Amino acid sequence: MSLVLTERAAEEVRRIVEQQKLEEGAFLRVGVTGGGCSGFSYSLGFDNTFDEKADSKASCHGVDVVVDKKSALYLDGTTVDFYDGIEKRGFTFENPNAVKSCGCGSSFQA
């Protein structure tokens, strides 16, 4: 899997895990779903169900990240970062496979 979670994003994921008191073994699941204003939307969530045939798992800065193999086609080479500024706050995606993105950055065309 060649999706990268930055150190800043990993810190935020660990903060959320601790704050929400998620159970041991929970990992970050990153994916792509149909929809959004540009065709595909990014999805982020916590999960503890891993399917060796359908998922890929990697560790980035101490955070386990899982991507299903269908989403991996669209996320290859993507960097997930966390931005915390005055004008916005949240996870960002730098996806080299996106040919067009919407203004909010949460959806894209491949």
Rank of each mutant, 00 (worst) to 15 (best):
C60F: 09
A58I: 07
C60H: 10
E94I: 02
G45K: 15
G45E: 13
F91A: 00
L28E: 03
G25Y: 12
V80N: 03
K53Q: 11
C104N: 15
C37A: 12
C104Y: 05
D68V: 05
G85P: 00
G90E: 00
A54Q: 09
F27G: 01
T49W: 08
Y83S: 02
R14S: 14
V63T: 03
E87K: 04
F46N: 12
L3Q: 09
R8S: 13
V4F: 11
A26L: 06
R15Q: 08
S56N: 07
F108G: 00
M1K: 13
F91P: 00
C104K: 14
V66R: 00
E23R: 14
N95S: 02
K69H: 07
V17L: 09
F50H: 07
A9R: 03
F40K: 10
D68K: 01
D64Q: 01
G34F: 15
A26K: 15
A54F: 10
L3C: 09
D64W: 03
A58G: 06
D81M: 01
L73T: 04
G34K: 15
V13N: 04
V80P: 00
E11N: 08
A98E: 07
L5P: 02
L73W: 03
D76I: 02
S71M: 01
V13Q: 04
D47Y: 13
D68H: 05
G25W: 05
G45A: 13
E12K: 11
L75D: 04
G34Y: 15
P96Y: 05
G35N: 07
R89G: 00
D55G: 03
Q109V: 01
S106G: 12
F108Q: 02
F46D: 13
S106R: 12
R89K: 07
R29T: 14
R14N: 11
F46T: 11
I16D: 04
K100P: 09
R15F: 08
R15G: 04
K70W: 11
N48Q: 14
S38H: 09
L3K: 13
E23W: 11
T79R: 02
E24I: 05
D76K: 13
G45I: 13
V4N: 14
N97M: 10
L5G: 05
E87W: 06
T6V: 13
G45F: 14
T6Y: 14
